[in-house]
Nucleic acid binder design. Structure first.
Lengths: 232, 232
DNA sequence: AAGTGGTCTAGACCACGTC
DNA sequence: ACGTGGTCTAGACCACTTT
């Protein structure tokens, strides 16, 4: 009989994870309840609870009151992506960061943008900019800012600082959505990124919102061969 | 003086998040310590702790012993992507799922795969398969399986069940990494996905490993216009 | 009705990093 | 050395869901 010393909730997490991986507890199977495990492990129920909660958060367990805790039938693997500020990402790759504002126009947005942002009428600020690493194009930023939600943006200076960074520091952010896709380079994009027309580009589209309104929508078009990595 | 009733750690989380969003506590600023907040909120320190920990997990706070808790200077936005089993994803879109095994070969892998998987010598199992939704190509699965790590795979029947699903159910998974990128369709891929050559395709590359060895490596090449969405 | 997870509390001690 | 977060404990009560 191997005796394992279980003291922290991380120990509980590890021990339970091991039992799942080694198939002592199989997918779909119900595991003992918290009180029982606490007794077996020789720790308080709260400690077991914390460990099991962490595993449930990461998708390895399904827990329901009264129904008990089961090993997830199809462990949903959750990948957590950190979305950094572009400047930091570029500098983290050991490149010298540089930023160029390409255009800045205030005017009525086209219909599709209007719809996506929920702007019924009025103007929005359109920004096109280029972020570079070691003086090579890294990513195009194509952004619309809702000046009703962030009126100060109208007078902000985006020649020195990217709207990305300015917004992080000046607008109250609450929630948003993000979308990853692949697109063929348009002629204009190809010119900016110094690549071939139709080359496959990795694209991230983000919308962030306040409590009530959408603050901004940004499309980031990365130079060819960009990839986003994470551990799981 | 507005009096807020704080009872649960979620209440703590919300109240603190509100103070951050409304700039009562600004980025970089140190917030009161747990004991002080507990007193102010009229709850136990453990409750405050749980709430602040949740915010730190989501990247909104930086916490360090002795140094205290600060509002993150550049709130790292963390997007959590659920990586579902392809069948589930396709069915969740309301499409009828279908799976076709294209090829299955046992042999020595090419040098680059050998290197990526850390297989010094010997054979590996190479699978090429197609997943369809409503009989239209949805994604190509190009997979290498390390038969040293998973010997049963050598005799598994992949004509009915995708290796993806088989592995989830039969191999002990511990950790892995995942990479997202964009690629131009090769002639072969274009034929399988019924799209044009050079069309931009969204690509996910995954490696999963055991305790000691890499179990499998899979490249998923999605049909054009695929996108992956999440809330943040 | 009853069993299970979810959470709170008060007090305690520890671990870490800064001073 | 000391202040801060990190965690444990034992007991309690609540919330949800299934029986």
């Amino acid at each position: 009989m191997t005796q394992i010393s279980i003291k922290s909730w991380q120990d509980v997490q590890n021990e339970v994870r091991n039992r799942i991986n080694s198939r002592i507890w199989k997918p779909g199977q119900q595991i003992p309840n918290e009180a029982t495990l606490a007794q077996e492990f020789g720790c308080a129920r709260a400690t077991v609870n914390r460990g099991l909660q962490a595993l449930a958060d990461s998708g390895l367990l399904d827990r329901r009151r009264k129904a008990g805790t089961r090993v997830a039938l199809h462990p949903v693997r959750k990948a957590t992506l950190s979305i950094p500020i572009l400047q930091h990402e570029i500098e983290a790759r050991g490149l010298i960061y540089h930023y160029i504002l390409k255009s800045r126009t205030l005017g009525p947005p086209p219909e599709n943008i209007r719809a996506e942002m929920g702007i019924a009428t009025g103007n929005a600020l359109h920004i096109e900019a280029l972020h570079l690493g070691d003086n090579l194009p890294y990513v195009i930023e194509d952004r619309w800012i809702n000046i009703t939600a962030v009126p100060q943006a109208e007078t902000a200076d985006f020649t020195q600082q990217s709207p990305n960074k300015w917004l992080v520091e000046n607008a109250a952010f609450v929630s948003g959505d993000i979308e990853f896709s692949a697109e063929n380079a348009s002629p204009k994009q190809a010119e900016l990124l110094m690549c071939k027309i139709d080359e496959a580009l990795f694209v991230i589209k983000r919308r962030t919102q306040n409590h009530a309104q959408i603050i901004t929508q940004a499309t980031l078009i990365f130079a060819p061969h960009y990839s986003m990595k994470t551990r799981i």
